[in-house]
């Protein structure tokens, strides 16, 4: 794909994100699929501001919940830096709700990419995230109008954390740590 083609695809997604009014569950599902791709696949990280509340609560699998949009930025940037070719693949997304009461949507995705950047675990390992099978991620989001704008106010996430961390770990360093 050329840069021009990539930008065309990105701009189509951005346009829908900009004009979507979230009138139906189907619109909500399409919006958040396109929105998520603009952030992850096209690295428009600043657009986290569009739909994340300042005081969002992200309930994570290990109990280490994130509170606040700043944490979302930090978490996103860390993963992107470790996997510069990261792409987010949607398996499915669907929503329920209405304009008056807000919406909940559930999505299933997996990340595809190679650890060629530094991470908190050390230097790049060159290992792919999809190794034999996919690193699944599931999440549910609650979407409500806050000060007249649609926002994700709470999120529940499970990621394949152990497999993702293993991808960023050199085997040697794991052995060293275990022998200490």
């Amino acid at each position: 794909m050329t840069i021009a083609e990539m930008l065309k695809e990105r701009d189509q997604l951005v346009e829908y994100v900009n004009i979507c009014e979230l009138k139906t569950p189907a619109e909500v599902a399409k919006l958040f699929e396109d929105y998520t791709k603009t952030i992850w696949d096209f690295k428009l990280v600043g657009r986290i501001n569009d739909f994340y509340c300042d005081d969002i609560i992200i309930n994570r699998e290990g109990g280490s919940d994130l509170v606040g949009a700043k944490q979302v930025f930090r978490d996103t940037l860390h993963l992107m830096a470790a996997f510069p070719d990261l792409k987010l693949k949607f398996i499915d997304i669907f929503a329920e709700g209405n304009e008056a009461d807000g919406y909940n949507f559930g999505q299933a995705i997996y990340f595809d990419g190679t650890n060629t950047g530094y991470s908190k675990y050390g230097p790049p390992t060159g290992k792919p995230l999809t190794d034999g099978d996919v690193c699944l991620g599931l999440c549910e989001c609650r979407v409500e109008k806050v000060n007249g704008r649609w926002k994700i106010v709470e999120e529940w996430v499970t990621r394949s954390s152990a497999a993702t961390e293993q991808t960023m770990h050199m085997n040697e360093s794991i052995e060293e740590e275990e022998s200490c």
Binding site: L136, G137, A162
Partner: peptide, 9 residues
């Protein structure tokens, strides 16, 4: 099905 639990927990 896709099913995930808090394995760390």
């Amino acid at each position: 099905e896709m099913d995930m639990r808090s394995i760390e927990w």
